[in-house]
Simulated assay, not measured.
Amino acid sequence: MTYPLVFIDGDQGTTGLQIHERLRGRDDLRLLTLPAGQRKDPRARAEAINSCDIAILCLPDAAAREAVASIVNPDVRVIDASSAHRTQAGWTYGFPEMAEGQSQRIASALRVTNPGCYPTGAISLLRPLAKAGLLPDNYPITIHAVSGYSGGGRAAVETYEGPDAAQALPFQVYGLELAHKHAPEIQLHAGLARRPIFVPSYGAFRQGIVLTVALELDLLAPGTDIETLHATLQEHYAGARHVEVLPLAESSALKRLDPQALNGTNDLRLGVFGNREHGQVLLAAVFDNLGKGASGAAVQNLDLMLGAATAVQQAA
């Protein structure tokens, strides 16, 4: 039996290195990477991508588009970890728990776009509520998130771990122009009628995310309370292997959220926190920006795609 050939294009970046590490030692696939001297050679890259079964693109957006444009082999399947195709028609959004049947769509897709790290948390919280009709179309959503500095890629890692690390800011808010590229992705895949306000930030820790969305109960659909919001999330993710919705009693006992709590995993933890007196709710997601927010999600999607291929081979 010939095992599927998986080509990682951009395996020296933060996400690519983690994907490579997660796949190392697997005996159900073969890994293909380019030697250092050929990584920027268009001909070598085109030859590699057209010879593989599944290509995982860990590239800047423009380079990811070029890589896809170089594909002439109709059997090559792609997982794009960049943001180049996340809102583009013809690409399957690689968030298996997002909707019923999404895992099956990913398993059979030719083109899969890996979600962004922040959008993974925002969509996981908002899409089930929007689908259930709990969020009015005119509700102004504001999303706050803090990530480890690895979310900024190699340049940010160098800032915090390089020779000038002592001068790195302990905390910084960015995206002040309110034009972050994740906002359209969140709006589309969360099913929001209005563009959300997205306020991202980095802390002086390597990886991990806490993302929060604050809601006013009296502005939601009539009759919506803390229990309704929690039950909607719990029902949506019932049976999901990698998504946990904290019980309300456990959430109410928490005094703080640790963005690093799920580092090294592909898990996503959701919580609903509320103040009944003031009629306010805080939705929260905790996960690893390099796990469920990047490399972990890519490997999860790869396993779905490999499973579909294996099923087809066995059926034949």
Rank of each mutant, 00 (worst) to 15 (best):
45 R>M: 13
189 H>K: 10
165 A>L: 00
237 Y>M: 11
16 G>E: 09
155 A>S: 14
254 L>K: 15
222 P>E: 12
70 S>C: 10
137 D>W: 00
19 I>F: 07
96 P>G: 11
189 H>F: 08
238 A>R: 14
42 P>K: 10
217 L>V: 08
173 V>W: 01
159 T>E: 11
27 D>S: 15
2 T>E: 14
215 L>F: 05
283 L>E: 01
178 L>I: 02
220 L>Y: 08
153 G>P: 08
277 E>H: 11
151 G>L: 07
164 D>M: 06
281 V>L: 03
168 A>I: 05
174 Y>M: 01
188 L>I: 02
280 Q>M: 04
248 L>R: 04
256 R>D: 11
27 D>H: 13
221 A>W: 05
121 G>I: 06
293 G>D: 04
29 L>K: 13
153 G>H: 02
266 N>F: 04
102 Q>I: 04
283 L>H: 03
38 Q>V: 04
198 F>C: 11
93 Y>L: 11
42 P>H: 12
47 E>R: 12
316 A>G: 10
17 L>F: 03
22 R>N: 07
162 G>H: 02
293 G>N: 07
132 A>K: 00
19 I>E: 08
163 P>Y: 00
225 D>C: 05
315 A>M: 14
188 L>W: 03
32 L>R: 11
114 N>W: 12
192 L>D: 02
266 N>C: 15
197 I>E: 10
251 S>Q: 10
153 G>E: 03
270 L>H: 02
129 L>I: 04
90 G>F: 06
24 R>M: 12
154 R>N: 07
154 R>M: 05
176 L>V: 07
148 G>Q: 01
63 A>E: 15
274 G>W: 00
185 E>P: 00
244 E>V: 14
139 Y>H: 05
